[in-house]
Simulated assay, not measured.
Amino acid sequence: MSDEQHHLWKLLWDYDPNGLIVVDPDLYIKLVNPAFCRMFQVQQDDVIGQPAETLLGNVEDFKKAWQHNQVLRSQFREYPQYHLYVNQVIFSIEDEGLIAAIMVDISHELERKQELEQLKRETVQKVNEVVDNQMKVVQEIAGLLGETTAETKVSLLRIIHLLEQNTL
């Protein structure tokens, strides 16, 4: 690989907005990129050589990718201690004896989705409240109409009764 190609790969590694982590088969961290460090609020020098489990918790997907030499796509994962939600792809690089993961931060999208769901719930609740209030008003109006109709009927019956008495 030429120096220029190496430089381009280094730039890609440094500027990729996705978190990138590389571990060995014993699951010790070999490399992390700056985006990964931002996501997990760590310094690169502090995590290199550390067990991945210390930082990531459950690393069963890394083991599975290595043992079965397969690519695990669309692995949704939550890291609540970092307020982080990622969609990750984990794959082995058997020739190099490494396992890599690409982590796409979906925290903002998930938060937006949750906010939209909350807004939907609140809207449905407000609509229900409006309908309930309208039903109460309708019932009150119906009650008032019923009362005035009954009063009118009583008055009309009195008038009819009086007229009948006068005509006899």
Rank of each mutant, 00 (worst) to 15 (best):
L119D: 10
R112V: 08
Q67L: 15
R121E: 11
L98S: 06
Q50T: 08
L31M: 11
V124Q: 11
Q44N: 13
G49K: 07
E78I: 10
D45I: 09
G49F: 04
T123S: 13
S107R: 03
N69G: 05
D95S: 14
Q88D: 09
L84Y: 04
Q44P: 04
R77P: 03
Q88I: 02
S74A: 13
D46K: 10
E53T: 12
M39S: 05
D24S: 09
R77M: 11
D61P: 09
A35N: 04
A52M: 08
N87P: 00
V42S: 06
I99T: 12
D26G: 10
D95M: 07
L72I: 15
D46W: 11
K30E: 13
R73S: 14
V124G: 00
F62W: 09
Q81H: 12
S107K: 08
S74T: 08
I93N: 08
Y85H: 14
A35K: 03
Y82N: 05
D105L: 03
F40E: 01
P25L: 01
Q41I: 07
V47N: 05
Q44I: 08
L31H: 13
L31P: 00
V22M: 08
D105S: 04
I29P: 02
Q75Y: 14
E60S: 14
G57N: 04
E117C: 02
S107A: 01
E53P: 02
N58H: 09
V47I: 15
Q75D: 07
E111P: 00
D105I: 03
R73F: 12
Q118L: 13
L119H: 09
R73M: 13
R38Q: 10
V32K: 00
M103Y: 07
